[in-house]
């Protein structure tokens, strides 16, 4: 009776997936409503002319988006993007550089490796708000006799020429703003690299040494090429953090022109009840992050399937 068998099999299959679906359905529904539903709601809002608390009068297409680039006073939005680019580049380069250096040092089986690993990793446990308050003081912009923080140390050591306006520099201020972020995240990148190094089979090193490779060649030719996935992960993680940066900037400088990035701009726009504009900036920010993250996810997915 092949027909009956098929029916049994079908019923059996249904029985196995229904409980599973029911089990994950709460989180699925919550995700659908509170993540994707709200993204849709925000996108919908960004297409309307809702510039105050009254209900919108209608849809304006992508006007809110184009106006960000063409009709923003003082090109405020473009300026916030420029700030974000400087911040992101310095932050990502800084964490990679320091993360790599520390990982190389510890990878050589340094004494008390566990201790140093903890020391380097520890800043990550501090919230951006707390470290922002401390760095706000460290990066005191007073110079000469009214110097404070790092500037005061330079001044006291007779290294006055090193004193810096830090984040108040009109062009490179955001590079200074990236310093606390580097301090916090470099340890995490170091941990990623360490894991990457440890994941490389010992035989490869031995083989390279047997073949007469110098230490430099060992790293350059054998170890680094295997770290590509690690570097990619580090870039994605630090990159998306940096693009959404808000709390650190708010606690170091507060919301102001000099250090404004899109996330802070959204906050400022919301405070002044321009809901449609705030929604447009948020969606734009989401898209920028997605452009970076989604290809990475696809890549990871593919390589997992391949292996």
């Amino acid at each position: 009776m092949p027909f009956l068998n098929e029916e049994v099999a079908l019923r059996h299959r249904r029985r196995t997936w229904i409980p599973g679906l029911l089990l994950i359905s709460p989180s699925l529904i919550l995700l659908a409503v509170f993540v994707y539903g709200l993204i849709g709601w925000t996108f919908n809002l960004s297409l309307q002319d809702r510039h105050n608390a009254r209900p919108a009068k209608g849809y304006v297409g992508f006007d809110n988006y184009t106006k960000l680039f063409t009709a923003d006073i003082n090109d405020r939005f473009v300026h916030s993007l420029q700030n974000l680019v400087v911040f992101t580049v310095v932050f990502m380069a800084g964490t990679l550089l320091f993360g790599l250096i520390w990982a190389l040092l510890l990878e050589r089986r340094a004494r008390a490796e566990g201790f140093f690993r903890t020391i380097y990793l520890f800043p990550m446990a501090v919230s951006f708000v707390a470290s922002g308050v401390v760095w706000r003081w460290l990066m005191n912009t007073g110079q000469g006799d009214s110097a404070g923080g790092i500037n005061a140390i330079f001044h006291g050591l007779g290294l006055g020429f090193l004193e810096s306006p830090w984040w108040t520099h009109p062009d490179w201020g955001m590079a200074a703003m990236a310093m606390p972020a580097i301090w916090q995240l470099a340890g995490y990148v170091m941990a990623l690299f360490l894991a990457g190094f440890r994941g490389i089979p010992e035989e490869l090193r031995e083989a390279a040494v047997v073949d007469g490779a110098t230490t430099f060649q060992l790293y350059r030719q054998v170890l680094f090429p295997q770290l590509t996935p690690t570097i990619l992960s580090a870039l994605i993680i630090t990159g998306h953090m940096s693009m959404k940066m808000f709390d650190l900037i708010m606690s170091v400088s507060g919301a102001q022109w000099l250090t404004e990035v899109p996330a802070v701009y959204v906050w400022q726009t919301l405070l002044t009840r321009d809901y449609a504009k705030a929604a447009a900036i948020s969606v734009f920010l989401l898209l920028v992050v997605a452009v970076v993250v989604v290809p990475y996810l696809i890549h990871v997915n593919r390589s997992e399937k391949r292996s």
Binding site: I73, Q256, W257, E260, T269, D274
Partner: peptide, 26 residues
């Protein structure tokens, strides 16, 4: 409040670059 926000931002910019024409236009 919307007006205040724009004016504060423009003053913040002027404080760092001193661009008279830009402040007046803003």
């Amino acid at each position: 409040q919307t007006w205040q926000g724009a004016v504060s931002s423009a003053q913040g910019k002027f404080s760092s670059d001193g661009d008279v024409a830009a402040l007046q236009a803003a």
